[in-house]
Simulated assay, not measured.
Amino acid sequence: MLPDTITKYLVGHVTRNVPAAMRWYADHAEVTDDGKTYRGRDEIRAWLARSASEYSYTTELISTRQIDEHTYVATHHLEGNFPGGTVDLDFTFTLVDGLISRLVIA
C-alpha cells in the first residue's frame, strides 16, 4: 500500500497534469530519470512538462512495495511510441515530511 502522497502524485503524473503532480514535491526535491537528475521545483516542472509531451504511452501500476520507513517503490508497465515500445519501470520514492524529496525512475 502506497501513502496518499505517492498515490495522488502518480495520478497527476500518469494523467500528465503537471500542476497536480508538482504539489507533492518538496522544495528541495530531486528526480533522476533516464540517467539525468533534476533538482528543485523549476527543473522538475520542466522535466514533467517535457516528458508529458515527448511520447504517447499507457501506464499500468503492476506492483508496489515499501523498502523502509521513508522509501516506496511503484513498478509501472509502459507501452507506447518510445524506443523499445514497452518497459517496466520502478519509481522509487523517498518521502520527507509527507512530500516527495527524491524520485528515481529506473
Rank of each mutant, 00 (worst) to 15 (best):
H28S: 12
L48D: 01
A49F: 05
I44S: 00
G84D: 07
S63L: 09
I62M: 04
H70C: 09
T59R: 10
A106N: 15
V87D: 09
I100C: 02
D88V: 13
V11H: 11
E30Y: 07
S63C: 06
S56R: 11
T59G: 09
E60I: 09
S63D: 15
T5E: 08
T92E: 08
D97F: 02
R39T: 15
R16P: 05
H13F: 15
K8L: 09
A106D: 15
T15W: 06
H76Q: 10
P19S: 07
A26M: 14
R39A: 13
Y55R: 12
L10T: 06
R102Q: 11
T86L: 07
R45F: 10
H13I: 06
D68F: 02
T7I: 14
G85H: 05
T7R: 15
H77E: 09
D33K: 08
D4E: 14
F93Y: 08
Y57E: 05
R50D: 13
T7V: 15
G12K: 05
H76N: 07
V11W: 04
F91E: 00
S101Q: 15
V104S: 01
M22V: 05
M1R: 07
V31T: 14
L2I: 03
V18M: 00
V73W: 03
F93C: 02
E30N: 09
Y25H: 06
E30V: 10
E79D: 13
I44P: 01
D42E: 15
F91A: 04
A20W: 05
T92N: 04
R50F: 15
D90T: 07
E60Y: 10
T94D: 01
W24S: 03
I44Q: 04
E69N: 08
T64S: 03
G85D: 09
I67H: 06
V104L: 06
Q66R: 09
I67L: 14
D68I: 04
I105M: 02
V87N: 09
M22S: 06
Y57C: 09
S53I: 02
P3K: 04
P3L: 08
K8A: 12
E54T: 14
S51M: 15
G40S: 07
R16M: 05
V73K: 04
T86P: 08
V73F: 05
I100F: 04
D4L: 13
L78H: 12
G98Y: 08
